[in-house]
Structure formats: structure tokens, C-alpha cells
Write a protein that binds this DNA or RNA. Structure first.
Lengths: 150, 150
DNA sequence: TATATTAGTTCAACACGTGAACTATTCACG
DNA sequence: CGTGAATAGTTCACGTGTTGAACTAATATA
């Protein structure tokens, strides 16, 4: 693969990622119609899917400092969507979970994402999806190894 | 495709996009070692690749308001990496371009991205890359149509 | 028991986002 | 023409997200 082709590939890839990601955010947010930011929704989503979730874990998953997570959690607690509780075994640990109101909003969001995906997934056949995801997984693994080799 | 499979697909896709994107940012920024933010680097990159670039165009590309672009451009101008000039034909238009210092930084960044991609692209064969990009393009087009159908 | 490590929060400072208010220029049409 | 609408862009206030340092509290280690 020559240099120009790689350059074109990089440009196209960066543009596509930006486009797909931002458009997805717009489409989901338009529908659920809450006053939450995207970051708040990602956190809400992750916490509901991974029980016994901690600040440290979230910081690692989203590649930010713990203080950044604290700030977002504070806003979600203020909005009565999330709550903190102490771990019985190790009292340093703060376990995060959604309130009933938070769970309700989570379900609304998931349902919207599902409908969105359902509406266009028919345009792909299963083999195409499998291949795409396999390549994507491979890419993710390569970058992960690269970051950890230091 | 049943409901559970779609849910798993969505989760895996969201995780992968977040992972790949953020890890790529970390790897590039570690190497070029400037004090610029990611957003500033994206703008720098876009402006150098698309001559005669305007605030309005950047706002559309990055899915933000024009005022957000103005703010970032201000910071890049302060750092002596970008400059504004007036269009001769239509004096409302502000044409953005990089200073020599900005171009130098751009080349440094591109070279780093290139080396990074080059180092792992050998692990994919050309057919796999072509198929991946085709599916990605298709996905981007579907989301674009969806957003415009309103 | 003393010290180091771990989990988490708060704070100041800065970057980024929006939407409203504003300036300046060009377009459209009676 | 001239006047109002549309377009390009900036500035501002305010809320949110991020870092890194300083801090509290609890647990692990030697």
C-alpha cells in the first residue's frame, strides 16, 4: 500500500468517525429530549449496564481523570438520576447506581438507540456486520497493545 | 437478527468507537508533544487540508455553532498558528489559513499519524481494509440521510 | 504501629459548547 | 435605486468538562 493511499485512508477514516459519532449523538438526543449532555448520557448508560460501578473504573473506561468523573456524577446526583453508596467490605469505595428516575431515562434512551439501529440494520447482511465488527475489534486490540507496550 | 444480538452489537460498537478514538488521540498527542488540545489539532488539520476555509464550513463539519469555532480559532491565532484574512469578493467572509509555524506543527502531526497507521496497517490485508471502509461509508450515508429526512 | 497505597472529593483554572445580541456586508425585489 | 431580509462572523454570559494539586478517609504493608 503506497503512501498516498494510506493518507487518503487516514483522512476518510477520521472524517467518517467524526461524522458517524456526532450524527448518532444528534439523532439520539433529539428523540429522548432530556436536558442531559452526551457525557452525562454515556455515564448513565455505563453505570446501569455495569453494576457495582466505581469512579476509578469510569475514569479508566472514558480515559479521563477521576476528578472529571466526580464532577459529572455530582450533576447527575443533583438531577436525581444517580446515587452514591458505600461499599460494605471496603469503605473507601463509592458504589454508583441509578435512581428509579435514572433507570427510566436509561430505558428511554436504550429504546431510542435500538429503534434507530433497527431501522437501518436491515440494509446490512449478517456477514457484512460480522466482518465489519471483526476488523473493528482487531483495530481496537492493536491500539490497546500499542498503548500498553510502554 | 434478534433483539439480544442487536443490543450486544450496539454495546460493542459504542465501546469500540470510544476506545479506538480516544486511544488514537492519546498516541498522537503523546508524540507530537505540543500544548494544543485535540479540538485545536482537528481544526488545524482541517484548515490546512481545505484551503479557503471559513468559520461556517468548520461549524458544519464539526457539528457545532459558529461561535464555538470562533473561540478555538482565537486561541490558535493567539498561539500564532493560524491567521484570518478577508475575502476580496465578499468582504463578509473571513478566510482561515495556517501560519508557517502552524504548517510546521501540522506536518509533525501528520507524520506521527502516518507512522502510527503504517505500523499496524500491515496486519490487515487490502481486501479487509476495503470491506471495512465500504461498510463504514455505508453507515455514514445512512445516518446522513436519516438526519436530512426531517 | 508507622507508613505507603488506594479511593474518592474539592478546588482553581482553562477549554469548549450554546444561544442571544451585535456589527458588517451582500442579496432581493418593489 | 433604496430598504428590509439574509448571510458571515464575533463577542458575551453562563453552564459543562478536564486537568492537576491538595485534601480526607480507609486499607494494606512491612
Amino acid at each position: 500500500m503506497n503512501k498516498t493511499l494510506i493518507q487518503e485512508l487516514i483522512n476518510r477514516y477520521i472524517t467518517l468517525t467524526n461524522d458517524v459519532w456526532k450524527r448518532g449523538e444528534v439523532l439520539v438526543r433529539e428523540e429522548i429530549g432530556s436536558d442531559l449532555t452526551n457525557d452525562q448520557l454515556y455515564l448513565l448508560r455505563y453505570v446501569n449496564q455495569h453494576k457495582q460501578c466505581t469512579t476509578t473504573e469510569l475514569a479508566e473506561v472514558f480515559f479521563v481523570q477521576k476528578s472529571a468523573i466526580s464532577a459529572i456524577v455530582n450533576r447527575l446526583v443533583e438531577k436525581n438520576l444517580m446515587e452514591r453508596s458505600q461499599d460494605k467490605e471496603d469503605r473507601r469505595i463509592v458504589v454508583l447506581s441509578l435512581t428509579d428516575e435514572g433507570k427510566e431515562l436509561y430505558l428511554k434512551m436504550e429504546s431510542k438507540i435500538f429503534k434507530l439501529v433497527e431501522s437501518f440494520i436491515t440494509q446490512f447482511n449478517e456477514k457484512e456486520i460480522t466482518q465489519f465488527m471483526q476488523s473493528y475489534e482487531k483495530l481496537a486490540k492493536i491500539l490497546k497493545d500499542k498503548m500498553e507496550e510502554k
